[in-house]
Simulated assay, not measured.
Amino acid sequence: MMQDDDTTPVLARLAALRAMSVKELKVEWDKLFGAEAPNNSRSFLEQRLAYRIQELTFGGLSKPTRQLLDALADEVEGRKVRKSVISDPRNPVIGTRLMREWNGTEHVITVLKDGFDWQGRKYKSLSAIARTITGTQWNGYRFFGLRERKDAA
């Protein structure tokens, strides 16, 4: 088992995890988290304990990073718990109308707070709209001219 003092170098503490039994890892979990280990998976316990040791030594994630990760998780899960909205910095201001002509037809897209409107239908991405318009896979930002040009000097 690891020494109780915080003077043991981090690398030594991390290396010690490999030599511990699952029972010892669970004791270490209780010491570092103040709760019972959630399972008996050796790899899970080692990885999470290693992160916790480093977190306690060097500090955890910043508040803005934690908020960003929480918001991204909400977006992936399809539910919105937090008040912030993750948006691509390439998106124009809400309400902006994007126009693109394709095969002689003009298409107008309106930027919404949480997506895009095209022909009265809401889309999560410009790529989905571009694919519907063209029938092929497109990068939506490129299709609607929102990517920065690398040749501009």
Score class of each variant (00 low, 15 high):
residue 76 V to S: 00
residue 41 S to Q: 13
residue 83 K to Y: 03
residue 58 F to N: 05
residue 88 D to H: 03
residue 51 Y to A: 05
residue 93 V to D: 05
residue 7 T to Q: 08
residue 5 D to N: 08
residue 67 Q to E: 15
residue 67 Q to Y: 08
residue 20 M to Q: 14
residue 36 E to P: 00
residue 72 L to G: 05
residue 37 A to K: 06
residue 90 R to T: 03
residue 132 T to Q: 01
residue 149 R to I: 03
residue 118 W to N: 05
residue 28 E to C: 15
residue 117 D to G: 04
residue 70 D to E: 15
residue 147 R to H: 07
residue 150 K to M: 05
residue 46 E to Q: 14
residue 33 F to D: 01
residue 79 R to L: 00
residue 90 R to Q: 01
residue 33 F to K: 07
residue 124 K to E: 04
residue 75 E to A: 05
residue 36 E to D: 05
residue 69 L to D: 12
residue 142 R to E: 14
residue 82 R to F: 01
residue 144 F to I: 12
residue 151 D to Y: 15
residue 101 E to V: 07
residue 50 A to Y: 14
residue 47 Q to Y: 11
residue 100 R to Q: 15
residue 125 S to C: 00
residue 112 L to M: 15
residue 56 L to Q: 14
residue 60 G to Y: 13
residue 123 Y to W: 08
residue 53 I to G: 08
residue 23 K to A: 15
residue 34 G to Q: 06
residue 107 H to T: 11
residue 22 V to G: 12
residue 75 E to W: 02
residue 96 T to A: 13
residue 29 W to N: 07
residue 94 I to A: 08
residue 137 Q to Y: 06
residue 96 T to G: 09
residue 84 S to C: 02
residue 151 D to W: 15
residue 77 E to W: 00
residue 27 V to L: 14
residue 72 L to F: 11
residue 137 Q to A: 15
residue 146 L to D: 10
residue 131 R to N: 03
residue 27 V to G: 06
residue 13 R to P: 04
residue 144 F to K: 09
residue 112 L to S: 11
residue 151 D to E: 13
residue 142 R to A: 14
residue 137 Q to C: 10
residue 94 I to F: 09
residue 5 D to W: 04
residue 87 S to N: 00
residue 114 D to T: 14
residue 45 L to Q: 09
residue 91 N to F: 06
residue 20 M to H: 07
residue 152 A to Q: 12
residue 137 Q to K: 10
residue 78 G to C: 01
residue 85 V to E: 01
residue 99 M to S: 13
residue 121 R to D: 02
residue 112 L to Q: 09
residue 27 V to F: 06
residue 122 K to H: 10
residue 37 A to N: 06
residue 74 D to L: 02
residue 129 I to E: 00
residue 86 I to F: 03
residue 34 G to K: 05
residue 58 F to K: 03
residue 20 M to V: 11
residue 49 L to S: 10
residue 7 T to G: 04
residue 24 E to S: 12
residue 81 V to A: 02
residue 70 D to R: 12
residue 61 L to S: 07
residue 71 A to Y: 06
residue 69 L to C: 13
residue 5 D to P: 02
